[in-house]
């Protein structure tokens, strides 16, 4: 039986995929199995519940805030005096911030900003890291002698990035680009690049020795095709877990940058890290101004961490029945 070349390749790819699936247990896909186990893990449920609530507040909340988060009504009405910032009242549930703006409204609007900053910076790190790690992993696993050379050059660069304390890296990026919201996102994103790159590379090298790769390559599938359609999809699990965990650290690192004075200089865009950093000077006057955004950050980071850890457990083949 003869097939057109294109058709043939398609068929061969399919074959390689089937052998890959058989490599896992009884045709139950890794992901479906993982989902099943996630649903039975209480800490995954708690983490997911926190995140659903957070995303809901971030997406819908800003449409329902009682006050304009940038309106300095407290100063206009003269209720803010040096050394005294009014706390909770029936009109302003969490009182005013140091510039006379409604704290509750700022927290709600800040949730959206925090979510955006977290997601964008993680995506920046993920994209660059996956590109570097993917190329290095494919080159190391399939590329022969030249491939190993490419891999070791790329990994040396990644190791250099890893050898700098993360905050120093973020601080220098922030200094390079000048203070702005975009800078913060890039600076926090860059820090996670080496982690994603190392993770994907390691996972791809482990996959390159699996039987399905051997099967695909003995069937004559091109190396680039094997790397992109077979190895990468099978290697992504730890990267996705890491991305969930990175979302938590990203939110915390944004706060650290703001604290060092390298955050977003524009306080009309409330963001929890910035609010927390701004509140440090008013700790004696109104500790609440620091505590509310801090609790927001801690709970959200906890949500991402709980879900990420549960995913790691669910995807770990060692822990499968």
């Amino acid at each position: 039986m003869t097939l057109a070349p294109g058709k043939k390749k398609e068929k061969l790819d399919r074959l390689a995929e089937l052998s890959a699936v058989r490599d896992d247990e009884q045709g139950v896909s890794l992901w479906r199995e993982a989902m099943r186990r996630l649903r039975r893990n209480p800490s995954a449920i708690v983490g997911a519940a926190i995140l659903v609530l957070f995303v809901l507040v971030a997406v819908v909340g800003p449409f329902f805030v009682p006050y304009d988060p940038v309106d300095q009504s407290g100063i206009r009405e003269g209720v803010i005096k040096p050394g005294s910032i009014p706390g909770s009242s029936a009109e302003h549930w969490l009182g005013y911030d140091h510039q006379g703006r409604d704290e509750f409204s700022r927290l709600i609007v800040g949730a959206r900003q925090t979510l955006i900053v977290g997601i964008v910076s993680t995506l920046i790190g993920l994209t660059i890291g996956v590109l570097i790690g993917g190329v290095a992993g494919a080159a190391a696993g399939l590329g022969g002698r030249w491939g190993r050379l490419v891999d070791s050059v790329l990994m040396r660069i990644v190791d250099m990035l890893l050898s700098l304390p993360s905050l120093l890296l973020a601080v220098s990026v922030a200094a390079l680009l000048g203070p702005s919201l975009v800078t913060v996102m890039i600076a926090v994103g860059v820090v996670s690049v080496p982690i994603f790159a190392r993770l994907l590379r390691g996972s791809m090298i482990a996959q390159a020795n699996r039987d399905y790769v051997l099967a695909a390559s003995s069937l004559g599938v091109r190396k680039s095709k094997i790397a992109i359609s077979h190895i990468v999809p099978n290697s992504l699990a730890p990267v996705i877990v890491q991305a969930t965990l990175t979302l938590a650290t990203a939110i915390i690192e944004v706060a650290a940058l703001s604290f060092l004075g390298l955050g977003n200089p524009d306080s009309t865009q409330p963001e929890w890290g910035l609010m927390l950093a701004d509140a440090q000077i008013y700790l004696d006057v109104r500790p609440g101004l620091a505590i509310y955004p801090a609790v927001g950050i801690i709970v959200t980071a906890l949500g991402f961490t709980l879900l990420g850890e549960a995913m790691r457990e669910a995807l770990d083949p060692k822990l499968r029945r």
């Binding site: 938590a248 650290t249 915390i252 706060a255 650290a256 604290f259 890290g273 927390l276 440090q280 700790l283 500790p287 620091a290 801090a294 950050i297 801690i298 980071a301 906890l302 961490t305 709980l306 850890e309």
Partner: peptide
Amino acid sequence: SLLGTCVPIFFLAYVLKA
């Protein structure tokens, strides 16, 4: 330990100091 990784370190430092 899960909670420990989620607290911004400078906030913890301020709380301890206060």
